[in-house]
Design a protein around this nucleic acid. Structure first.
Ligand SMILES: [Mn+2]
Ligand SMILES: [Mn+2]
Ligand SMILES: [Zn+2]
Ligand SMILES: [Zn+2]
Lengths: 139, 139
DNA sequence: TGATAACTGCAAAGAATTTGCAATAATACT
DNA sequence: AGTATTATTGCAAATTCTTTGCAGTTATCA
């Protein structure tokens, strides 16, 4: 991943820094999407000193390069970020009790998209689908 | 609608006020969901003097009573509210150009919900589905 | 090694929403 | 109708997440 990152950064006149490496590493080590402040806390625990503002700026860059996706889950009031590079399009389910987020490795919306384009005359570029419920522990 | 509102308010020890009547009326007169500040502007245009804070509080009450739904559309960074009372479950498509929001009077997720419950062991209570694209004018 | 320009930290600003509190107004009771 | 009760409102201030400005720092390359 780090190779691709250097490549992407170079191509846009950017530099590989301690910060960018660290943020990408933490995201890679997590199986669920992290918010900026969660990421910040993880970094602090690992004794990597990076300002929260820099975390935000780094996430913006990684998003622009296509390495991470920015998620807006419901009832959260904040963004979350997860590795996108090399991962398939997917959706999420979030526990209304504990907030646990699980990947749903499916997408039922291809056919529906054509239908909607015909009905609305929109050109559809994106969609978001999310489920909320209670995980086994919270039921 | 106002009859049902009085009923709902009474049942929870609340009162019918100028504010609540006005907010409900403006929402009823709109075919797309409004944000708190948009609602506030509409009220000002109609010479109905209500503080923005009160608009927020009113929307919270109307939501609690089930008269309005609170929507969190993507790329908006604010809530929107629309009349829920007497309307069917539906989803939305939003133009990435002009922000126009159109109702999609369909929901393809009933079957999928059962599948997801089996796969994840969650109990699914809600879902959100939203499309983004370009409306005819913005294409 | 030094020049250049990107990057970072810190302080502050923004934007949406919520909270505290005293003044106001709706409802119930005489 | 007049009054007591208590929900509601307006205004100021606080909160939370995110962005911006700027001067000092650091990566990159000649
Ligand atoms: Mn995911
Ligand atoms: Mn709608
Ligand atoms: Zn999908
Ligand atoms: Zn649905």
């Amino acid at each position: 991943m780090i190779g691709k990152l250097i490549e992407g950064l170079r191509a846009t006149g950017r530099r590989l820094t301690r910060t960018r490496r660290a943020v990408l590493r933490v995201l890679e080590g997590n199986q669920y999407p992290l918010s900026a402040s969660e990421l910040y806390e993880r970094l602090q625990k690992e004794k990597v000193s990076i300002d929260l503002v820099t975390v935000y700026r780094t996430l913006t860059v990684l998003k622009e390069l296509g390495f991470v996706s920015q998620l807006e889950l419901h009832h959260e009031g904040q963004f979350r970020y997860e590795i996108r590079q090399g991962r398939k399009h997917h959706h999420h389910i979030r526990c209304q009790g504990c907030g646990r987020i699980v990947d749903l490795l499916l997408c039922p919306l291809k056919k529906l998209t054509s239908l909607i384009e015909k009905e609305t005359q929109f050109v559809v570029n994106e969609h978001t689908l999310e489920f909320g419920g209670l995980c086994p522990k919270c039921q």
